[in-house]
């Protein structure tokens, strides 16, 4: 990674001031390599937004670094003060990884067949949903008889069950002889 790449990343993150921005934009007009790097950054960001559902916050690196600085370390008292490299090490690794991604995107984008999309997540083969073998519904003892269809014709009738312990007996009662008053009927 050269300094120009770092500057491009800061430009993409909106961290350059007006003068630096104007200067870089003037350079981009005559520097196709830098323009490609910037395009790669945009494509990488687009990929991340598409895959992760959100665009990384522009100040993500700053937030991470601030969190790292705030986190108390249990072994801090036992060790000498961290060197400068230990503090910036994680950040440097992150920057290197990002730069590698940008370079990789650029390399891929140079291939005419693979311009869009630059980075494509391979779609894993979708396994058919595993269906547990379904046991036939065990008809409960009390449901061993079911009245499926009744045509009472011109008469009135009702269907109910007489409960007895855990079992029950379905009853089809037609109104040839009305059900005795006081009889308790339960819906089937």
């Amino acid at each position: 990674m050269n300094s120009n790449h770092a500057r491009l990343m800061r430009y993409y993150d909106g961290e350059l001031d007006n003068d630096e921005t104007a200067e870089l934009e003037a350079e981009l007009a005559g520097d196709p390599e830098s323009a490609e790097v910037l395009e790669g950054l945009e494509q990488l960001s687009e990929f991340l937004r598409r895959e992760a559902g959100q665009r990384p916050a522009p100040d993500l690196t700053d937030a991470i670094m601030a969190q790292v600085a705030r986190e108390p370390r249990q072994d801090r008292k036992l060790e000498p003060a961290p060197s400068r490299w230990r503090v910036i090490g994680p950040a440097a690794a992150a920057v290197l990884a990002l730069a590698a991604s940008v370079a990789l995107v650029n390399e891929i984008s140079k291939a005419p067949e693979a311009r869009v999309p630059v980075v494509q997540q391979p779609t894993p083969p979708v396994a058919p949903p595993h269906e547990e073998p379904v046991e036939p519904t065990v008809v409960a003892e009390r449901d061993a008889v079911s009245i499926e269809t009744v045509d009472f014709g011109v008469r009135e009738g009702t269907i109910f069950v007489v409960q007895e312990g855990e079992g029950s007996t379905p009853v089809v009662w037609l109104m040839d002889e009305p059900a005795p008053a006081g009889g308790r009927m339960e819906p089937l």
């Binding site: 009744v150 045509d151 014709g153 089809v172």
Partner: peptide, 21 residues
């Protein structure tokens, strides 16, 4: 009197048709 009654019944499981005078 009872034009149609369709029943699904397990063996030995009773049901009752009542109400005829």
């Amino acid at each position: 009197f009872l034009p149609l009654l369709e029943v699904k019944a397990g063996v030995e499981q009773p049901f009752i048709v009542a109400g005829q005078s």
